[in-house]
Design a protein around this nucleic acid. Structure first.
Lengths: 234, 234
DNA sequence: CGGCTCTTTGACCTAGTTCAAAGCGCGTGG
DNA sequence: CCACGCGCTTTGAACTAGGTCAAAGAGCCG
Protein backbone atom coordinates (compact mmCIF):
# COMPACT_ATOMS: atom_id res chain seq x y z
CA UNK A 1 0.00 0.00 0.00
CA UNK A 2 2.79 2.35 0.88
CA UNK A 3 4.56 1.52 -2.34
CA UNK A 4 2.02 2.90 -4.71
CA UNK A 5 4.37 5.46 -6.11
CA UNK A 6 3.77 6.98 -9.48
CA UNK A 7 5.66 9.31 -11.77
CA UNK A 8 8.14 10.54 -9.27
CA UNK A 9 11.05 8.30 -8.35
CA UNK A 10 12.01 8.21 -4.68
CA UNK A 11 10.19 7.08 -1.61
CA UNK A 12 8.70 10.40 -0.88
CA UNK A 13 7.03 9.34 2.35
CA UNK A 14 10.38 9.11 3.99
CA UNK A 15 11.33 12.66 3.19
CA UNK A 16 11.22 14.85 6.23
CA UNK A 17 13.05 17.99 5.24
CA UNK A 18 9.80 19.78 4.79
CA UNK A 19 9.02 21.75 7.89
CA UNK A 20 5.59 20.48 8.75
CA UNK A 21 6.25 16.87 7.92
CA UNK A 22 7.73 15.78 11.21
CA UNK A 23 5.49 17.29 13.74
CA UNK A 24 2.24 16.49 12.10
CA UNK A 25 2.89 13.29 10.31
CA UNK A 26 4.70 11.43 13.05
CA UNK A 27 1.60 11.60 15.13
CA UNK A 28 -0.32 9.83 12.46
CA UNK A 29 0.88 6.30 12.96
CA UNK A 30 -1.52 5.32 15.63
CA UNK A 31 -4.95 6.68 15.15
CA UNK A 32 -4.97 8.52 11.83
CA UNK A 33 -6.11 6.84 8.69
CA UNK A 34 -4.13 6.70 5.50
CA UNK A 35 -6.03 6.70 2.27
CA UNK A 36 -4.92 6.15 -1.30
CA UNK A 37 -6.39 8.10 -4.19
CA UNK A 38 -5.91 7.82 -7.92
CA UNK A 39 -5.32 10.50 -10.52
CA UNK A 40 -8.36 12.72 -11.09
CA UNK A 41 -10.01 11.55 -7.87
CA UNK A 42 -11.39 14.32 -5.71
CA UNK A 43 -10.75 14.65 -1.97
CA UNK A 44 -13.37 17.33 -1.41
CA UNK A 45 -15.39 19.76 -3.47
CA UNK A 46 -16.17 23.43 -3.03
CA UNK A 47 -19.24 23.56 -0.85
CA UNK A 48 -18.53 20.29 0.95
CA UNK A 49 -18.93 20.45 4.70
CA UNK A 50 -15.59 20.76 6.40
CA UNK A 51 -14.77 17.66 8.41
CA UNK A 52 -11.02 17.39 8.46
CA UNK A 53 -7.71 18.61 7.15
CA UNK A 54 -5.31 16.30 5.38
CA UNK A 55 -1.62 15.94 4.98
CA UNK A 56 -0.33 14.67 1.69
CA UNK A 57 2.07 11.75 2.22
CA UNK A 58 2.89 10.95 -1.39
CA UNK A 59 1.85 12.05 -4.85
CA UNK A 60 0.54 15.47 -5.72
CA UNK A 61 -2.69 17.39 -5.95
CA UNK A 62 -4.20 20.59 -7.21
CA UNK A 63 -6.69 22.93 -5.58
CA UNK A 64 -9.15 24.68 -7.81
CA UNK A 65 -12.22 26.88 -7.82
CA UNK A 66 -14.89 27.38 -10.41
CA UNK A 67 -14.98 30.70 -12.25
CA UNK A 68 -18.13 32.57 -13.22
CA UNK A 69 -17.64 31.27 -16.76
CA UNK A 70 -17.78 27.73 -15.45
CA UNK A 71 -14.19 26.76 -16.04
CA UNK A 72 -11.73 25.68 -13.43
CA UNK A 73 -9.08 27.95 -12.03
CA UNK A 74 -6.11 26.36 -10.27
CA UNK A 75 -5.27 28.02 -7.00
CA UNK A 76 -2.46 25.83 -5.74
CA UNK A 77 -0.44 22.67 -6.16
CA UNK A 78 0.47 20.37 -3.30
CA UNK A 79 3.31 17.96 -2.63
CA UNK A 80 4.15 15.51 0.15
CA UNK A 81 4.13 17.14 3.56
CA UNK A 82 1.73 19.87 2.48
CA UNK A 83 -1.46 20.33 4.43
CA UNK A 84 -4.70 20.73 2.54
CA UNK A 85 -8.19 21.58 3.60
CA UNK A 86 -7.50 24.45 5.97
CA UNK A 87 -9.72 26.63 3.80
CA UNK A 88 -12.56 24.90 5.63
CA UNK A 89 -11.83 26.48 8.99
CA UNK A 90 -13.27 29.74 7.79
CA UNK A 91 -16.94 28.94 7.36
CA UNK A 92 -16.88 25.20 7.89
CA UNK A 93 -17.40 24.67 4.20
CA UNK A 94 -14.60 24.07 1.74
CA UNK A 95 -14.12 26.93 -0.66
CA UNK A 96 -12.13 24.90 -3.12
CA UNK A 97 -11.92 21.53 -4.74
CA UNK A 98 -8.96 19.25 -4.22
CA UNK A 99 -8.08 16.89 -7.05
CA UNK A 100 -5.19 14.44 -7.14
CA UNK A 101 -2.79 14.66 -10.06
CA UNK A 102 -1.41 11.15 -9.64
CA UNK A 103 -1.74 8.23 -7.28
CA UNK A 104 -1.37 9.77 -3.84
CA UNK A 105 -1.84 9.00 -0.19
CA UNK A 106 -3.12 11.30 2.51
CA UNK A 107 -3.46 11.25 6.27
CA UNK A 108 -6.67 12.59 7.67
CA UNK A 109 -7.04 14.77 10.77
CA UNK A 110 -10.57 15.36 11.90
CA UNK A 111 -11.56 18.67 13.35
CA UNK A 112 -11.83 17.09 16.80
CA UNK A 113 -8.36 15.58 16.57
CA UNK A 114 -6.94 18.92 15.52
CA UNK A 115 -8.53 20.68 18.43
CA UNK A 116 -7.26 18.20 20.95
CA UNK A 117 -3.79 18.17 19.40
CA UNK A 118 -3.75 21.95 19.52
CA UNK A 119 -4.69 21.86 23.18
CA UNK A 120 -2.10 19.25 24.05
CA UNK A 121 0.92 19.77 21.90
CA UNK A 122 3.00 22.89 21.61
CA UNK A 123 4.80 21.34 18.65
CA UNK A 124 1.53 20.80 16.84
CA UNK A 125 0.39 24.35 17.51
CA UNK A 126 3.47 25.96 16.10
CA UNK A 127 3.56 23.52 13.23
CA UNK A 128 -0.02 24.17 12.13
CA UNK A 129 0.37 27.91 12.52
CA UNK A 130 3.56 27.81 10.51
CA UNK A 131 1.95 25.78 7.77
CA UNK A 132 -0.98 28.15 7.48
CA UNK A 133 1.24 31.18 7.71
CA UNK A 134 3.45 29.72 5.03
CA UNK A 135 0.45 29.40 2.72
CA UNK A 136 -0.43 33.01 3.38
CA UNK A 137 3.07 34.14 2.52
CA UNK A 138 3.06 32.03 -0.63
CA UNK A 139 -0.27 33.48 -1.68
CA UNK A 140 1.05 36.98 -1.17
CA UNK A 141 4.08 36.21 -3.31
CA UNK A 142 1.75 34.86 -5.94
CA UNK A 143 -0.33 38.03 -5.85
CA UNK A 144 2.83 40.07 -6.19
CA UNK A 145 3.95 37.98 -9.09
CA UNK A 146 0.61 38.29 -10.88
CA UNK A 147 0.45 42.03 -10.56
CA UNK A 148 4.06 42.97 -11.15
CA UNK A 149 5.66 40.37 -13.34
CA UNK A 150 5.43 39.66 -17.03
CA UNK A 151 4.78 36.23 -18.47
CA UNK A 152 8.46 35.30 -18.79
CA UNK A 153 9.09 36.11 -15.15
CA UNK A 154 6.02 34.25 -13.97
CA UNK A 155 6.90 31.09 -15.84
CA UNK A 156 10.47 31.24 -14.57
CA UNK A 157 9.24 31.78 -11.03
CA UNK A 158 6.89 28.86 -11.31
CA UNK A 159 9.61 26.47 -12.45
CA UNK A 160 11.92 27.75 -9.72
CA UNK A 161 9.25 27.30 -7.08
CA UNK A 162 8.79 23.69 -8.17
CA UNK A 163 12.53 23.22 -8.13
CA UNK A 164 12.68 24.58 -4.60
CA UNK A 165 9.85 22.38 -3.40
CA UNK A 166 11.50 19.28 -4.83
CA UNK A 167 14.82 20.10 -3.26
CA UNK A 168 13.11 20.68 0.10
CA UNK A 169 11.80 17.15 -0.30
CA UNK A 170 15.24 15.80 -1.15
CA UNK A 171 14.42 15.23 -4.77
CA UNK A 172 16.45 16.64 -7.62
CA UNK A 173 16.01 20.36 -8.03
CA UNK A 174 17.06 20.37 -11.66
CA UNK A 175 15.34 17.30 -13.01
CA UNK A 176 11.74 16.44 -12.26
CA UNK A 177 8.49 15.68 -13.94
CA UNK A 178 5.36 17.73 -13.89
CA UNK A 179 2.29 15.97 -12.68
CA UNK A 180 0.01 18.72 -13.94
CA UNK A 181 -0.98 19.66 -17.47
CA UNK A 182 0.01 22.86 -19.27
CA UNK A 183 -3.57 24.00 -18.87
CA UNK A 184 -3.30 23.65 -15.08
CA UNK A 185 -0.03 25.56 -14.99
CA UNK A 186 -1.30 28.32 -17.25
CA UNK A 187 -4.39 28.71 -15.09
CA UNK A 188 -2.30 28.82 -11.93
CA UNK A 189 0.12 31.47 -13.13
CA UNK A 190 -2.64 33.43 -14.80
CA UNK A 191 -1.94 33.37 -18.50
CA UNK A 192 -3.20 31.78 -21.68
CA UNK A 193 -1.91 28.29 -22.35
CA UNK A 194 -0.49 29.54 -25.65
CA UNK A 195 1.59 32.16 -23.87
CA UNK A 196 2.95 29.55 -21.49
CA UNK A 197 3.86 27.32 -24.39
CA UNK A 198 5.65 30.15 -26.19
CA UNK A 199 7.66 31.07 -23.11
CA UNK A 200 8.67 27.47 -22.56
CA UNK A 201 9.88 27.08 -26.12
CA UNK A 202 11.79 30.35 -25.75
CA UNK A 203 13.48 28.94 -22.63
CA UNK A 204 14.38 25.79 -24.51
CA UNK A 205 15.81 27.74 -27.43
CA UNK A 206 17.90 29.76 -24.97
CA UNK A 207 19.16 26.45 -23.56
CA UNK A 208 17.88 27.31 -20.12
CA UNK A 209 15.91 24.14 -19.78
CA UNK A 210 14.44 21.30 -21.75
CA UNK A 211 10.97 19.86 -21.51
CA UNK A 212 10.02 16.63 -23.14
CA UNK A 213 6.48 15.63 -22.46
CA UNK A 214 6.25 16.20 -18.71
CA UNK A 215 9.94 15.79 -17.92
CA UNK A 216 11.75 18.99 -17.04
CA UNK A 217 15.52 19.35 -16.97
CA UNK A 218 16.93 22.69 -15.91
CA UNK A 219 20.21 23.28 -17.70
CA UNK A 220 21.04 26.76 -16.49
CA UNK A 221 19.64 27.56 -13.09
CA UNK A 222 21.27 30.98 -12.95
CA UNK A 223 19.82 32.00 -16.27
CA UNK A 224 16.42 30.86 -15.07
CA UNK A 225 16.81 32.88 -11.89
CA UNK A 226 17.73 35.88 -13.99
CA UNK A 227 14.58 35.41 -16.05
CA UNK A 228 12.51 35.29 -12.89
CA UNK A 229 13.57 38.81 -12.02
CA UNK A 230 13.19 41.95 -14.05
CA UNK A 231 14.46 41.71 -17.59
CA UNK A 232 16.15 45.07 -17.72
CA UNK A 233 17.93 44.25 -20.94
CA UNK A 234 15.13 42.94 -23.08
CA UNK B 1 -7.30 57.93 24.05
CA UNK B 2 -10.08 55.73 22.85
CA UNK B 3 -11.69 58.62 21.09
CA UNK B 4 -9.01 59.30 18.57
CA UNK B 5 -11.23 58.58 15.61
CA UNK B 6 -10.40 59.89 12.21
CA UNK B 7 -12.11 59.92 8.85
CA UNK B 8 -14.73 57.31 9.58
CA UNK B 9 -17.75 58.30 11.65
CA UNK B 10 -18.90 55.78 14.25
CA UNK B 11 -17.30 54.35 17.31
CA UNK B 12 -15.79 51.46 15.54
CA UNK B 13 -14.29 49.89 18.65
CA UNK B 14 -17.70 48.91 19.77
CA UNK B 15 -18.52 47.02 16.63
CA UNK B 16 -18.58 43.32 17.28
CA UNK B 17 -20.32 41.85 14.27
CA UNK B 18 -17.04 40.79 12.83
CA UNK B 19 -16.43 37.16 13.61
CA UNK B 20 -13.08 37.32 15.28
CA UNK B 21 -13.72 40.46 17.23
CA UNK B 22 -15.39 38.95 20.26
CA UNK B 23 -13.31 35.98 21.02
CA UNK B 24 -9.96 37.60 20.65
CA UNK B 25 -10.56 41.16 21.69
CA UNK B 26 -12.62 40.55 24.78
CA UNK B 27 -9.66 38.86 26.29
CA UNK B 28 -7.61 41.97 25.82
CA UNK B 29 -8.97 44.10 28.62
CA UNK B 30 -6.78 42.81 31.33
CA UNK B 31 -3.31 42.05 30.26
CA UNK B 32 -2.99 43.10 26.62
CA UNK B 33 -1.69 46.48 25.69
CA UNK B 34 -3.50 48.92 23.49
CA UNK B 35 -1.42 51.19 21.38
CA UNK B 36 -2.32 54.18 19.24
CA UNK B 37 -0.63 54.86 15.93
CA UNK B 38 -0.88 57.77 13.52
CA UNK B 39 -1.26 57.81 9.75
CA UNK B 40 1.89 56.58 7.96
CA UNK B 41 3.29 55.03 11.12
CA UNK B 42 4.61 51.53 10.70
CA UNK B 43 3.76 48.64 13.02
CA UNK B 44 6.39 46.29 11.63
CA UNK B 45 8.59 46.05 8.57
CA UNK B 46 9.43 43.18 6.30
CA UNK B 47 12.37 41.43 7.89
CA UNK B 48 11.46 42.41 11.45
CA UNK B 49 11.67 39.61 13.95
CA UNK B 50 8.22 38.25 14.71
CA UNK B 51 7.20 38.98 18.28
CA UNK B 52 3.43 39.22 18.28
CA UNK B 53 0.25 39.40 16.29
CA UNK B 54 -2.09 42.35 16.58
CA UNK B 55 -5.75 42.98 16.35
CA UNK B 56 -6.90 46.27 14.91
CA UNK B 57 -9.39 47.97 17.23
CA UNK B 58 -9.99 51.14 15.26
CA UNK B 59 -8.72 52.84 12.15
CA UNK B 60 -7.29 51.06 9.14
CA UNK B 61 -4.00 49.81 7.81
CA UNK B 62 -2.32 48.46 4.73
CA UNK B 63 0.10 45.59 4.31
CA UNK B 64 2.74 45.92 1.66
CA UNK B 65 5.85 44.34 0.27
CA UNK B 66 8.69 45.77 -1.71
CA UNK B 67 8.99 44.79 -5.35
CA UNK B 68 12.25 44.13 -7.16
CA UNK B 69 11.94 47.59 -8.71
CA UNK B 70 11.89 49.09 -5.26
CA UNK B 71 8.32 50.30 -5.21
CA UNK B 72 5.69 49.22 -2.76
CA UNK B 73 3.01 46.71 -3.60
CA UNK B 74 -0.11 46.63 -1.42
CA UNK B 75 -1.11 43.13 -0.41
CA UNK B 76 -4.05 43.82 1.87
CA UNK B 77 -6.10 46.38 3.74
CA UNK B 78 -7.23 45.93 7.32
CA UNK B 79 -10.16 47.20 9.34
CA UNK B 80 -11.23 46.91 12.98
CA UNK B 81 -11.39 43.31 14.14
CA UNK B 82 -8.86 42.13 11.58
CA UNK B 83 -5.78 40.34 12.79
CA UNK B 84 -2.43 41.32 11.40
CA UNK B 85 1.03 39.89 11.72
CA UNK B 86 0.27 36.21 11.26
CA UNK B 87 2.69 36.20 8.32
CA UNK B 88 5.37 36.03 10.99
CA UNK B 89 4.47 32.52 12.13
CA UNK B 90 6.08 31.10 9.04
CA UNK B 91 9.74 31.84 9.55
CA UNK B 92 9.55 34.08 12.61
CA UNK B 93 10.27 37.06 10.46
CA UNK B 94 7.61 39.33 9.03
CA UNK B 95 7.34 39.09 5.29
CA UNK B 96 5.44 42.32 4.91
CA UNK B 97 5.26 45.83 6.22
CA UNK B 98 2.21 47.11 8.04
CA UNK B 99 1.44 50.82 7.75
CA UNK B 100 -1.50 52.65 9.26
CA UNK B 101 -3.72 54.65 6.94
CA UNK B 102 -5.19 56.83 9.66
CA UNK B 103 -5.06 57.14 13.43
CA UNK B 104 -5.60 53.61 14.68
CA UNK B 105 -5.39 51.49 17.77
CA UNK B 106 -4.22 47.92 18.06
CA UNK B 107 -4.10 45.24 20.71
CA UNK B 108 -0.96 43.22 20.92
CA UNK B 109 -0.71 39.47 21.53
CA UNK B 110 2.76 38.16 22.09
CA UNK B 111 3.76 34.81 20.77
CA UNK B 112 3.77 33.40 24.30
CA UNK B 113 0.29 34.70 25.01
CA UNK B 114 -0.97 33.16 21.81
CA UNK B 115 0.49 29.83 22.65
CA UNK B 116 -0.99 29.76 26.11
CA UNK B 117 -4.36 30.96 24.85
CA UNK B 118 -4.31 28.25 22.21
CA UNK B 119 -3.59 25.67 24.87
CA UNK B 120 -6.30 26.92 27.20
CA UNK B 121 -9.16 28.17 25.14
CA UNK B 122 -11.15 26.26 22.56
CA UNK B 123 -12.80 29.54 21.54
CA UNK B 124 -9.46 31.12 20.88
CA UNK B 125 -8.27 28.14 18.85
CA UNK B 126 -11.21 28.15 16.53
CA UNK B 127 -11.19 31.89 16.30
CA UNK B 128 -7.56 32.14 15.28
CA UNK B 129 -7.87 29.28 12.83
CA UNK B 130 -10.94 30.88 11.32
CA UNK B 131 -9.23 34.22 10.99
CA UNK B 132 -6.22 32.71 9.26
CA UNK B 133 -8.37 30.51 7.10
CA UNK B 134 -10.46 33.52 6.17
CA UNK B 135 -7.35 35.32 4.99
CA UNK B 136 -6.43 32.32 2.89
CA UNK B 137 -9.85 32.25 1.27
CA UNK B 138 -9.69 35.98 0.61
CA UNK B 139 -6.26 35.65 -0.95
CA UNK B 140 -7.53 32.91 -3.21
CA UNK B 141 -10.44 35.04 -4.31
CA UNK B 142 -7.99 37.81 -5.02
CA UNK B 143 -5.86 35.49 -7.11
CA UNK B 144 -8.92 34.41 -9.01
CA UNK B 145 -9.93 37.98 -9.59
CA UNK B 146 -6.48 38.97 -10.82
CA UNK B 147 -6.22 36.14 -13.29
CA UNK B 148 -9.77 36.02 -14.60
CA UNK B 149 -11.31 39.43 -14.33
CA UNK B 150 -10.89 42.58 -16.36
CA UNK B 151 -10.23 45.99 -14.85
CA UNK B 152 -13.91 46.96 -14.63
CA UNK B 153 -14.74 43.79 -12.72
CA UNK B 154 -11.80 44.14 -10.38
CA UNK B 155 -12.64 47.70 -9.46
CA UNK B 156 -16.28 46.78 -8.89
CA UNK B 157 -15.24 43.80 -6.77
CA UNK B 158 -12.96 45.98 -4.72
CA UNK B 159 -15.66 48.54 -3.94
CA UNK B 160 -18.09 45.75 -3.12
CA UNK B 161 -15.61 44.08 -0.81
CA UNK B 162 -15.17 47.34 1.06
CA UNK B 163 -18.92 47.75 1.21
CA UNK B 164 -19.24 44.26 2.66
CA UNK B 165 -16.55 44.84 5.24
CA UNK B 166 -18.17 48.06 6.38
CA UNK B 167 -21.58 46.45 6.68
CA UNK B 168 -20.05 43.58 8.69
CA UNK B 169 -18.80 46.28 11.03
CA UNK B 170 -22.20 47.92 11.25
CA UNK B 171 -21.18 50.90 9.18
CA UNK B 172 -22.99 52.04 6.07
CA UNK B 173 -22.45 49.73 3.13
CA UNK B 174 -23.28 52.40 0.55
CA UNK B 175 -21.54 55.44 1.93
CA UNK B 176 -18.04 55.38 3.29
CA UNK B 177 -14.71 57.04 2.86
CA UNK B 178 -11.53 55.51 1.60
CA UNK B 179 -8.59 55.78 3.91
CA UNK B 180 -6.17 54.71 1.19
CA UNK B 181 -4.94 56.57 -1.87
CA UNK B 182 -5.75 55.68 -5.47
CA UNK B 183 -2.18 54.50 -5.81
CA UNK B 184 -2.69 52.03 -2.96
CA UNK B 185 -5.91 50.73 -4.46
CA UNK B 186 -4.45 50.41 -7.93
CA UNK B 187 -1.49 48.51 -6.55
CA UNK B 188 -3.74 46.21 -4.56
CA UNK B 189 -6.03 45.32 -7.45
CA UNK B 190 -3.15 45.09 -9.85
CA UNK B 191 -3.61 47.81 -12.40
CA UNK B 192 -2.21 51.18 -13.37
CA UNK B 193 -3.53 54.11 -11.40
CA UNK B 194 -4.72 55.67 -14.65
CA UNK B 195 -6.84 52.63 -15.44
CA UNK B 196 -8.40 52.74 -12.00
CA UNK B 197 -9.18 56.40 -12.46
CA UNK B 198 -10.80 55.77 -15.83
CA UNK B 199 -12.95 52.97 -14.50
CA UNK B 200 -14.08 55.10 -11.58
CA UNK B 201 -15.08 57.98 -13.84
CA UNK B 202 -16.94 55.48 -16.05
CA UNK B 203 -18.84 54.25 -12.99
CA UNK B 204 -19.70 57.80 -12.07
CA UNK B 205 -20.89 58.60 -15.58
CA UNK B 206 -23.09 55.49 -15.46
CA UNK B 207 -24.49 56.81 -12.19
CA UNK B 208 -23.41 53.68 -10.34
CA UNK B 209 -21.54 55.61 -7.70
CA UNK B 210 -20.03 58.94 -6.94
CA UNK B 211 -16.63 59.68 -5.52
CA UNK B 212 -15.66 63.07 -4.26
CA UNK B 213 -12.17 63.15 -2.89
CA UNK B 214 -12.16 60.07 -0.67
CA UNK B 215 -15.89 59.88 -0.04
CA UNK B 216 -17.69 57.07 -1.86
CA UNK B 217 -21.45 56.87 -2.30
CA UNK B 218 -22.84 53.84 -4.05
CA UNK B 219 -25.98 54.82 -5.92
CA UNK B 220 -26.79 51.55 -7.64
CA UNK B 221 -25.60 48.50 -5.79
CA UNK B 222 -27.15 46.07 -8.26
CA UNK B 223 -25.47 47.73 -11.20
CA UNK B 224 -22.18 47.57 -9.33
CA UNK B 225 -22.72 43.88 -8.63
CA UNK B 226 -23.43 43.35 -12.30
CA UNK B 227 -20.16 45.07 -13.18
CA UNK B 228 -18.31 42.82 -10.79
CA UNK B 229 -19.32 39.79 -12.81
CA UNK B 230 -18.72 39.12 -16.46
CA UNK B 231 -19.71 41.93 -18.78
CA UNK B 232 -21.38 39.83 -21.42
CA UNK B 233 -22.87 42.84 -23.11
CA UNK B 234 -19.91 45.12 -23.48
C1' DC C 1 0.64 82.57 -3.03
C1' DG C 2 3.69 78.85 -4.27
C1' DG C 3 4.82 74.29 -3.80
C1' DC C 4 3.30 70.02 -2.47
C1' DT C 5 0.78 65.48 -3.39
C1' DC C 6 -2.83 63.23 -5.47
C1' DT C 7 -5.88 62.61 -9.39
C1' DT C 8 -7.72 62.91 -13.99
C1' DT C 9 -7.52 62.92 -19.00
C1' DG C 10 -5.55 62.17 -23.57
C1' DA C 11 -2.71 59.75 -27.12
C1' DC C 12 0.05 56.09 -28.25
C1' DC C 13 1.95 51.41 -27.95
C1' DT C 14 2.98 46.70 -26.50
C1' DA C 15 2.37 42.35 -24.06
C1' DG C 16 -0.50 38.97 -24.06
C1' DT C 17 -5.15 37.10 -25.56
C1' DT C 18 -7.93 34.98 -28.95
C1' DC C 19 -8.89 32.31 -32.83
C1' DA C 20 -7.61 28.81 -35.98
C1' DA C 21 -5.12 24.97 -37.36
C1' DA C 22 -1.67 21.68 -37.32
C1' DG C 23 1.43 18.36 -34.72
C1' DC C 24 2.22 14.72 -31.64
C1' DG C 25 2.08 10.96 -28.29
C1' DC C 26 -0.74 7.33 -26.55
C1' DG C 27 -4.22 3.95 -25.86
C1' DT C 28 -7.76 1.13 -28.09
C1' DG C 29 -9.68 -1.86 -31.10
C1' DG C 30 -9.59 -4.12 -35.45
C1' DC D 1 0.99 -4.30 -35.82
C1' DC D 2 -1.17 -0.53 -37.67
C1' DA D 3 -4.95 2.87 -38.01
C1' DC D 4 -7.87 5.76 -35.79
C1' DG D 5 -9.38 8.99 -32.46
C1' DC D 6 -8.53 11.73 -28.53
C1' DG D 7 -6.30 14.76 -25.30
C1' DC D 8 -2.70 17.69 -25.01
C1' DT D 9 0.61 20.89 -26.98
C1' DT D 10 2.67 23.95 -30.26
C1' DT D 11 2.72 27.57 -33.75
C1' DG D 12 1.02 31.41 -36.52
C1' DA D 13 -1.56 35.70 -37.32
C1' DA D 14 -4.62 39.33 -35.95
C1' DC D 15 -6.61 42.02 -32.30
C1' DT D 16 -7.30 44.55 -27.93
C1' DA D 17 -7.18 45.62 -22.98
C1' DG D 18 -4.54 47.91 -20.39
C1' DG D 19 0.11 50.06 -19.62
C1' DT D 20 3.11 54.00 -20.37
C1' DC D 21 4.20 58.67 -21.09
C1' DA D 22 3.02 63.38 -20.77
C1' DA D 23 0.58 67.12 -19.12
C1' DA D 24 -2.98 69.45 -16.97
C1' DG D 25 -6.35 69.91 -12.85
C1' DA D 26 -7.40 70.14 -7.95
C1' DG D 27 -7.10 70.05 -2.90
C1' DC D 28 -4.09 71.13 0.88
C1' DC D 29 -0.74 73.38 3.87
C1' DG D 30 2.76 76.32 5.39
Amino acid sequence: MENVLPLRPNKIERVSAYQSEDSIATRSNTRNSHRIYQRKQVLYCAGDVFKAVYQLRSGSAKASVCTVNGDEHITDFFYPGDIVGVDGFDSFVHSQQLTFLETSSVVCYTEREIDSLLAKSEAFRSSLLRAMSHSLVRDQQMLLSLTNCCSVQRVAQFILSLSKRFSERRCSSVEFSLSMTRTDIASYIGMAIETLSRVLTAFQQANILSIKHRKVVINDLDALRAKAKVDLFL
